[in-house]
C-alpha cells in the first residue's frame, strides 16, 4: 500500500512539467499550428524562470517573499515561451513558412537560448545559480497545512504536492472548459479543423492562431520552469530538461488532443519515466522502461488512424498552412 502511494505521488510529481508542456501544446495544435518547438520553449522557460526567482532573491535579500518569487518565476517562464511562440507564429502564420521546419528551428534556438542563459548566469555568479532554502520550500512543499498532509493515504495522494501540480490541473481543466463550453473555444476548434470554413464564417483565423500559439507556448514553457524548480532542485541542469519537450509532444497524441486526458496522461507518463527506479520486473531490462511512453504513443497513433471515430482524431488542418489566397 505504502509502496503504491509513494509510486503514485512520485508519478504526479514527475508528470507536472509534462502537464504544462502538453496543455500548452494542445492549445496550439487545436488552432492547427503544430509547434514542434516545445523542447526549446521549455528550455527557455526553465532558464528564465530560474533567473527571475534567483535575481529577485538577490535583489530583495532576506526580505524576499516566497509567493512573489513563485509568481515571478511563472511570469518569467511564461514570457520566455510566449516570445518563442510569437516568433514561430510570425514566421508560419504571417510569413507563411513551413510549420515543421520552423518548429524545429525554434527547438534548436530555444535549447540554445536556454543553455546560453543558464551557462551565462552560472559563470557570472561564480559557478552556482541556486535559490535559498527558505524560498525553495515555496516551490517544492505543499501549500496545504500539515494536518491535511498527515491524513493516511489521502494526505500524500491529494494534499502532498507542490503548488505547481494544482495549478497545472486547474489550467488543464480551464482549457478543457474553454474548448468545450465557450463560443471562442468552438471558434478555435473550427480554425484547427477547417480554417477556410472558419474564415468564410467570419472568424478571424489569423488572430485565433496567434493567440492560441502564443498562450500555448507560454504555458508549455512554465513546464520547463517547474522541472528546474521542483525535480532538479532549483539548480540549472540542462541535461535533466532534455527530452521533456519531446515527451510532451508525444503526450499530446496519447491524450488525443484533450486537456482533461492530459491530466491523467501526464501522471501515467511521469510514472513510466521513474518506474525503473522502483519496480523491477525480471527479464525486462530497466533501460527499456524509458522508451515505453514513446511505444505507447506510436500504438495510440496507429490505432486512431485505423479507426475512424470522429472525435478522437488530430485537428484536421494540423500542420497545414492556411493562406486565404491559395485555396
Amino acid at each position: 500500500m505504502n509502496f503504491l502511494v509513494n509510486l503514485i505521488a512520485a508519478a504526479v510529481l514527475n508528470g507536472a512539467p509534462l502537464l504544462y508542456g502538453t496543455t500548452g501544446e494542445i492549445l496550439s495544435e487545436r488552432s492547427g499550428n503544430l509547434n514542434l518547438g516545445v523542447e526549446g520553449m521549455m528550455y527557455m522557460g526553465g532558464a528564465l524562470g530560474l533567473g527571475a526567482a534567483f535575481y529577485y532573491e538577490k535583489a530583495a535579500g532576506a526580505s524576499a517573499s516566497g509567493p512573489v518569487a513563485v509568481l515571478l518565476a511563472i511570469a518569467g517562464a511564461f514570457l520566455a515561451g510566449a516570445i518563442g511562440a510569437l516568433i514561430y507564429s510570425v514566421i508560419t502564420v504571417s510569413l507563411r513558412a513551413n510549420q515543421n521546419v520552423t518548429g524545429l528551428a525554434l527547438a534548436i534556438f530555444g535549447t540554445g537560448v536556454g543553455q546560453y542563459i543558464g551557462e551565462y548566469m552560472r559563470v557570472r555568479e561564480g559557478g552556482y545559480v541556486a535559490i535559498g532554502n527558505t524560498l525553495k520550500t515555496y516551490f517544492q512543499n505543499s501549500p496545504f497545512p500539515d494536518a491535511l498532509q498527515r491524513i493516511p493515504v489521502a494526505g500524500p495522494l491529494i494534499f502532498g504536492y507542490n503548488i505547481f501540480v494544482y495549478l497545472g490541473v486547474i489550467v488543464a481543466v480551464i482549457l478543457w472548459l474553454f474548448l468545450r463550453k465557450t463560443r471562442s473555444g468552438l471558434y478555435l476548434r473550427a480554425v484547427g479543423e477547417s480554417p477556410a470554413t472558419a474564415d468564410a464564417a467570419g472568424i478571424h483565423v489569423t488572430r485565433y492562431k496567434y493567440a492560441a500559439t502564443v498562450l500555448g507556448g507560454g504555458i508549455s514553457a512554465i513546464g520547463g520552469m517547474v522541472y528546474i524548480m521542483t525535480i532538479a532542485g532549483c539548480v540549472w541542469n540542462h541535461e535533466g530538461l532534455s527530452g521533456e519537450g519531446w515527451l510532451a509532444v508525444a503526450l499530446v497524441i496519447f491524450c488525443l488532443w484533450s486537456p482533461l486526458r492530459a491530466v491523467w496522461g501526464s501522471v501515467l507518463f511521469g510514472g513510466l519515466m521513474i518506474l525503473y527506479l522502483r519496480f523491477v520486473v525480471p527479464f525486462f531490462p530497466t533501460q527499456l522502461y524509458k522508451i515505453l511512453p514513446y511505444v505507447v504513443t506510436v500504438v495510440v497513433l496507429i490505432i486512431t488512424s485505423m479507426r475512424s471515430s470522429k472525435d478522437k482524431q488530430p485537428p484536421a488542418s494540423l500542420g497545414l498552412p492556411y493562406f486565404r489566397e491559395e485555396r
Binding site: G40, L106, F109, G112, V113, Q115, Y116
Partner: peptide, 9 residues
C-alpha cells in the same frame, strides 16, 4: 551554445 542561438536566428 551561442552556436545554437545564432543557428536558430
Amino acid at each position: 551554445s551561442i552556436s545554437d542561438v545564432i543557428t536558430g536566428i
